[in-house]
Amino acid sequence: MSSTEQGTSSAAPAEPTTAPESAAAPEVPESFYYVHGKDKVVHKVSAGALQHSALIHGMISNLGYTEEQAKANPFPFENIDGDILQMVVDWCNQHKGKPTPPEDTNLPKQKEKLFDLVLAVNYLEIKELLTYCCKQVAMMVKGKSPEEIREIWMIPTDAEDEAAEKEAKKRAGKEAAGETAAAAGDAK
């Protein structure tokens, strides 16, 4: 694994302002964890930022890793593209410990990226970000006719879909027949 560690904004020393209570309380050092996507690029993320993801938060709570163990065992998310994971990490860092605003205008405008982000965020169980993404997809559907929706998302019509299914069945039938013939040949 290439470990191109990417320091993120959360990695920078961003100590809380010295409020009277925090001055009195013993300072707990922030713990960091490591994640990587399909591209194996490792991202260092604080536990505070990762709290947005119910999936990762659950994993962290159960594992109880030390800093060294966490570094040695980055969480692998092979099903998420590197750039999408980067977006997720950035979002978690930006919204660490902050109430999430009602709208988020920084989501990708490209539909493929947005869909990938929806899939990733759903998998990582990041509720607020999922809400923003779903709102954005709903906005992309708004005012579009069925034909326009089909065209934008390359969805086949029912007739095209049925034709493709028939074709696939026919192909599968032929392949199965071919295999049976080959097996019969082998038996001889």
């Binding site: 869909f115 929806v118 899939l119 759903n122 999922l130 579009k144 929706i149 390359m154 969805i155």
Partner: peptide
Amino acid sequence: NLLTIAEVPMTRITEFCDLKS
């Protein structure tokens, strides 16, 4: 595309859609 989105997000998407959509 819209058809490959899992059930939970797809349900959320339709919740944000108006009647015309």
